[in-house]
Write a protein that binds this DNA or RNA. Structure first.
Length: 1042
RNA sequence: GCCUUGGUGGCGGAAUUGGUAGACGCGCUGGAUUCAAAAUCCAGUGUCUUCGGACGUGUGGGUUCGAUUCCCACCCAAGGUACCA
């Protein structure tokens, strides 16, 4: 009887579902084990082969733990709020709830097909109101809490109000906004209600603040960095600028230190810990305040300022200018520095262009230039500004700050290498000690005073703290980095212009999204101040809207809802027209971000149907925390940091017993796919002279595409947009010229100008779905491509082909992802080879943690392994050996126990790829041994069961069992079957193995040495030379040097 | 740019503590079986070679009796970089 995986897999999937084989109980005498996979976002493309990789690993471990006698919780659910469903809704008008439901159905079918041991009775969906009720609940808890730095935990806001009423906020040490004013009890009690609310917002763990976003005016919406390509929107190519918006934020910074400290307690991969550590970015240093000099005064003094805005290096003159006329300092600049010891090396200051002070201190002469620069910076993304270290740019504001000690004026510049969101958005520039400052100073001809003893700074800055000895620095002269830092801090504190400070790179997390498909905030506004809706009225469900786009006035999509106001008396959602700001109030229009729903889902699985609480105390006390969490490392600083933050908050509030929710975490590597790209040429005209101002005219013609070989022929023209026409590239120019019938469309001459224009073009790269290629080749199926009509404009595409008359695409290895159009779907593979084959093959591909390319071809190897395994059990399958038990041979036992040991070790180390090899070796050996012994084949079925559960169940049944294999005890390894009496030693000369000799396993070092040296092959190798040294490592190797 | 990971045959990968490099599988070559094909089975398969052997784990150095493994410098690829999930 042949191995019929279709029948077998369907049979056991049905059996498991009917018998609820994997349902976990919240009560058990067995030890608990909680194994969790990161839940998927149900996209329209369905699961691809990358998804199950981690799920299979978690499933293997879960099944293994069941064999080992644990009560295993292994749940699955859906992270079902998100952008793609909303994009789809915008395009098609279909409600995201409907598409999401359909997608989930598809995912469920695909997951079921793979034979996972999930407890589906615990499924959660973040977009389900019964689930997001509790997401809203946590938001409210955060709103009603503040962070007390004295007790180092979150506390109820009422404890803070109590202190304010008694003594004001002078003694409160809290995580709060920087601009929180000081007040005493009397002042507090006299504040209006609104004022009190405003002040409390500065303390709450979730609060309203102005934060920067990527604003796309043309689309009227905020874009994710992901949606921006080269500074313009991915959809439509519209400009994007940085803009401030009032949004909800989460005070995660209050937990910065605890998030850092907690990393020591958890068994998570070191690289992941590193990225969280860097993300939090703790640095010790000083906060220093610089006074801005009175603008009138510094401007009128020509001795200080040279024509280009550079301070004269003549210190005597400068000294004279700072004669102590008491100055009124209306503005101050606060900077954070890790090098207070270099304070005398400051020769300028740089503000982020978006810094609040820029507009206030810029002199009229510099105004135009500064404003132009600020505007230009708004167009650049933060990442772009950080990554670009080559170009130095900045503008002098015309204003000066005063050095805290020398009282010399320091020019204040703005530069886009300083980010507003990091530190205070201002730096004291010490060019001799920081390379970026150095480059900036060199570029703008700003003096670079040397404050290091015996260091040459004529070529580059000197940043080595260890060997620093300070010079030219008044009271710091001759001190080391450590001493100088201490002294500088003390002096700064004396004059009230600085103090030691620990700075974190971590920023508070923006929690508002201008989207439809997310959790609504349980918030309404009275007199502009946010009010929370009570738990008993939750969930506050998403309203229906006509369209999912922002409103015409630029409000988020919820602004389109007509029934979206809160009646505070009836406690219901009512029509917007009823808003009177007395009993009916407007509701919040933003929704929560993707990570809201995933920040506590692991705890909700413990008691997912509870409507009274997020989970019962009994459930959380039993399950405690996740024992094994498997998911992608790309979540390192998103989900995995925010969820730790919420867990710590839940811990402070006493809701959960552990302040870290996952003991052990493993990152599965990505499965990479090979994306395909086509190249579109956009014809246009450009000035013949000068910088070649280019105007694209692509929209006038059919879209033109050139094969990848043709792209290689092109040569970009230096200093101009476009390409040089050469012998090689002529073919591309001709291709375009042939298609431009009506030259008048180009309007080569502008009436008002005398400049001439010429034809040229630009190249745009488009990623295309890999199913538009012919088979597995790089060649485009042009008919399919035209038919698909991507972006709605490629229907009549024309192609410049290669010599073989093919259009060849450019291929690139990237992570497999729907958004990259390079996914391979598991359904067809399951259909052809079965789930057990797919499970084995995904594991066989390579180490779980490493990323690896997908190639379906190799699956025949594991598929034939399963056939061989099946064949091994033939006597039991066809009944030819009924009732007769063959005694296992020594070889049988050796093979089995070798396999038990290896497989158990492998599972414990999550090395699943090597266990698959081990199974193959085992089956090959047992087949060669013609093994028919039940006492060998029975334990082998259990060993295989976590990996290939369907076939294992079937074989188990054929061996005569009536219960599922799921909880059969894991076989025990016995070392006695593996004892060897001899050892084959590799004999190497100068480290190279030349031949092998067999010796008894217990032979001593000296005896081995003697035997080897006496051997004829040794003499042959040495050719008369006397060995200088002989190394014998018993049980391992012999090495002869000579 | 910065942080992280990785680089071993034609391909995926193995080598668990510094000790036989290439296990296992794919592919390929030859053979058996077959009217034929599929499937299956058997043998071979790192490169070069004067058939003795020599070389070989991204590149260049170093430590060591011995390095895929440890150290230094560099090159290349992928992931993340704060609103994709």
């Amino acid at each position: 009887m042949n191995y019929n995986f279709r029948e077998i897999e369907a049979k056991w999937q049905k059996y498991w579902a009917e018998h609820e084989t994997f349902k976990a109980s919240n009560h058990s005498d067995k030890p608990k084990f909680y194994a969790l996979s990161m839940f998927p976002y149900p996209s329209g493309a369905g699961l691809h082969v990358g998804h199950p990789l981690g799920y299979i690993a978690t499933d293997i471990y879960s099944r293994y733990k069941r064999h080992k006698g644990f009560n295993v919780l292994h749940p699955m659910g859906y992270d079902s709020f998100g952008l793609p469903a909303e994009q789809y809704a915008i395009q098609t008008g279909q409600h995201p709830a409907i598409t999401t439901e359909n997608n989930i159905k598809r995912y469920r079918e695909q997951l079921d097909q793979l034979g996972f041991s999930f407890d589906w009775s615990r499924e959660v969906r973040t977009s389900n109101p019964q689930y997001y009720k509790w997401t809203q609940w946590i938001f409210i808890q955060l709103f009603h809490s503040w962070y007390n730095k004295k007790s180092d935990k979150a506390e109820d806001i009422s404890t803070l109000i109590f202190v304010f009423e008694k003594e004001g906020n002078a003694n409160v040490i809290a995580a709060c906004d920087d601009d929180t004013p000081m007040f005493n009890a009397g002042e507090w009690n006299n504040f209006s209600d609104k004022k009190k609310q405003e002040i409390l917002l500065k303390y709450r763990l979730t609060y309203l603040a102005d934060t920067e976003v990527n604003w796309c005016p043309a689309l009227g919406t905020v874009l994710a960095n992901d949606e921006i390509v080269n500074g313009v929107s991915e959809r439509g190519g519209h400009p994007v600028i940085r803009k401030k918006m009032t949004q909800w934020s989460m005070r995660i910074t209050a937990y910065a230190q605890r998030l850092l400290d907690g990393l020591d307690k958890i068994d998570w991969p070191q690289p992941l810990k590193d990225s969280q550590t860097n993300w939090i970015g703790r640095s010790e240093g000083a906060s220093v305040t610089f006074n801005v000099l009175d603008a009138e005064r510094s401007r009128s003094d020509n001795n200080v300022i040279s024509g280009e805005g550079v301070i004269s290096s003549d210190s005597e003159k400068s000294q004279k200018n700072v004669i102590s006329i008491p100055l009124n300092h209306p503005y101050q600049i606060e900077v954070f520095t890790t090098r207070p010891d270099t304070i005398f090396g400051v020769s300028f200051m740089t503000l982020a262009p978006e810094h609040d002070l820029v507009a206030k201190i810029t002199t009229p002469e510099q105004k135009a230039e500064v404003e132009a620069y600020v505007e230009a910076t708004a167009k650049r993304s933060e990442r772009d500004r950080m990554a670009d270290v080559k170009t130095v740019s900045g503008v002098f504001t015309g204003a000066y700050a005063e050095h805290p000690f020398t009282k010399e004026p320091i020019p204040i510049w703005i530069g886009d290498y300083v980010l507003a969101s990091y530190g205070t958005g201002a730096v004291m520039a010490v060019p001799c000690g920081d390379q970026r400052d150095y480059d900036f100073a060199k570029h703008y001809n700003i003096p670079i005073p040397n404050i290091f003893e015996g260091v040459d700074i004529s070529e580059e800055a000197f940043a080595d703290k260890a060997t620093t000895i300070i010079a030219n620095s008044d009271f710091l002269n001759g001190l080391s980095y450590k001493e100088a830092t201490k002294k500088a801090l003390a002096e700064l504190e004396k004059i009230g212009q600085g103090k030691g400070k620990v700075n974190y790179r971590l920023r508070d997390a923006v929690f508002s999204r201008q989207r439809y498909w997310g959790e609504p905030f349980p918030v309404y506004y009275v007199d502009g101040m946010p009010q929370m809706i009570d738990l008993e009225h939750l969930p506050l469900e998403l309203p229906e809207v006509e369209k999912y786009l922002p409103t015409e006035t630029g409000e988020p999509p919820l602004g389109n809802a007509t029934v979206w106001a809160w009646d505070a008396e009836q406690c219901t959602v009512v029509n917007n027209q009823l808003i009177d700001h007395k009993t009916v109030f407007p509701l919040e229009l933003n929704t929560m971000p993707g990570w809201a729903g995933s920040s506590q889902y692991f705890n909700r699985y413990m008691d997912p149907r509870n409507n009274e609480a997020i989970f019962s105390k009994e459930a959380i006390d039993y399950w405690q925390d996740v024992d094994l969490y498997i998911g992608g490392s790309e979540h390192a600083t998103g989900h995995l940091l925010y969820s730790r933050f919420w867990q710590k908050f839940m811990f402070d509030m006493g809701y959960v017993p552990m302040d870290e929710y996952a003991k052990k975490l493993i990152n599965q590597g990505m499965i990479t796919g090979t994306s395909a790209f086509v190249f579109q040429v956009i014809p246009g005209i450009r000035r013949k002279t000068g910088n070649g101002n280019f105007v694209g005219k692509g929209s006038l013609f059919a879209p033109l595409f050139i094969s990848v070989e043709k792209v290689d022929l092109l040569e970009e023209e230096e200093g101009k947009l476009g390409y040089v026409e050469t012998e090689k590239s002529k073919v591309v120019f001709d291709f375009i010229r042939e298609r431009i019938e009506d030259l008048s469309k180009f309007n080569f001459y502008d009436e008002s100008e005398t400049v001439e224009y010429e034809l040229n073009f630009q190249i745009i790269r488009h990623r295309i779905p890999i199913d538009m290629l012919k088979g597995t080749s790089d060649i485009l199926d042009k008919t399919k491509f035209r038919k698909s009509n991507m972006y709605g404009v490629f229907g009549d595409a024309e192609f410049l082909l290669n010599e073989e008359d093919e259009y060849v695409t450019h291929r690139e290895v990237e992570k497999m992802s729907k958004s990259k159009y390079n996914v391979v779907n598991p359904d067809a593979i399951c259909e052809e080879y079965g789930a057990d084959s797919l499970r084995l093959y995904e594991m066989f591909l390579g180490p779980l943690e490493q990323s690896k390319p997908w190639n379906t071809a190799g699956i025949t190897g594991v598929s034939s392994f399963l056939k061989k395994l099946w064949k091994l059990y033939t006597p039991f399958i066809d009944g030819s050996l009924s009732g007769v038990e063959a005694e296992p041979t020594a070889d049988n036992l050796k093979t089995l126990h070798k396999t038990i040991k290896k497989v158990e070790d492998d599972i414990e180390h999550f090395s699943f790829n090597t266990s698959v090899s081990t199974f193959m070796i085992c089956v090959n050996e047992l087949t060669a041994q013609k093994c028919t012994s039940k006492s060998i084949l029975e334990p082998l079925a259990i060993l295989v069961s976590p990996y290939a559960p369907h076939i294992a169940e079937e074989l188990w049944e054929r061996l005569g069992h009536t219960e599922s294999i799921a909880e059969a005890p894991f076989p025990t390894f016995e070392a006695k079957y593996l004892v060897e009496s001899t050892k084959e030693y590799p004999i190497s000369f100068n480290g190279k193995t030349r031949f092998k000799l067999e010796f008894p396993a217990d032979m001593g070092k000296e005896e081995i040495e003697a035997a080897v040296l006496a051997h004829e092959k040794t003499l042959e190798q040495l050719q008369g030379r006397a060995p200088k040294k002989v190394i014998v490592v018993p049980g391992k190797i012999v090495n002869i040097v000579g």
